[in-house]
Amino acid sequence: MSIYEPATAAETLSSRAIAHLISAALFLVVCFSWGTTWLGIKIVVESVPPLTASGLRFLIAFPLFLAFARLRGDPVLFPRRRLGFFAFVTLCYFSLPYYLLNYGELHVSSGLTALLFSCMPVMILVFSALLLRERIHLSRVLGITIGFASLVMILRSQGLGFSHDGFGAVLAILSAALMHALCYVVTKQRGAEISVITYNTLPIGLAGLLLFMAGLALERPDFSSISARSWGALAYLGLFASVGGFIVYFFLLKRMNPVMLSFVFILFPVFAVLVGAWYEGQPIAPDFAFYTTTLLAGFAVTKLPLERWSRR
Rank of each mutant, 00 (worst) to 15 (best):
E134F: 01
R133K: 14
L130D: 12
M153L: 14
G166C: 05
R140D: 13
A114D: 00
L130A: 13
I146V: 12
G159Y: 01
L155M: 02
F117S: 09
S150C: 14
G143V: 10
R133W: 08
V170T: 03
F162P: 03
S157C: 10
E134G: 03
M123F: 11
L112C: 00
E134C: 02
V152P: 08
L155P: 00
V170S: 02
V108E: 02
E134V: 01
S109W: 04
Q158A: 12
L125H: 06
L116P: 01
I136R: 05
C119E: 09
I144E: 02
G159V: 00
M153R: 12
S139H: 14
L116V: 03
F148P: 02
L131D: 08
L115V: 06
Q158T: 08
A129S: 15
A169H: 04
R135H: 14
L112V: 01
G166T: 03
H137Q: 15
L130N: 13
S163E: 10
I124S: 04
L125V: 09
Q158E: 13
F162Q: 05
M153C: 12
D165V: 13
G143H: 09
L138R: 12
Q158L: 10
I136E: 05
S109H: 06
P121R: 04
V108I: 12
G168T: 14
R156V: 07
L138W: 12
T113P: 04
F117G: 08
L115I: 05
L155R: 00
L130W: 15
S163D: 09
G166W: 03
S109I: 07
S128M: 10
S150A: 14
M123I: 08
T145G: 15
G168A: 14
L151K: 03
V170F: 03
R133S: 10
I136G: 03
F148T: 05
F127D: 01
V170C: 03
L151S: 04
R140P: 12
T145R: 11
L138V: 13
L131H: 10
V122P: 03
I136D: 05
I154Q: 02
F117N: 12
L131R: 11
S118A: 06
G147N: 03
F167C: 06
H164D: 09
S128V: 06
L115A: 01
S128R: 11
L142E: 10
H164A: 13
V141Q: 15
S110W: 03
L160P: 00
G161M: 00
A169E: 05
I124A: 06
D165L: 15
L112T: 00
I144A: 09
A149G: 08
M123T: 05
M123E: 07
G168S: 15
L116D: 01
S150P: 11
A129E: 08
L130R: 11
S150R: 07
L132Y: 10
R156T: 08
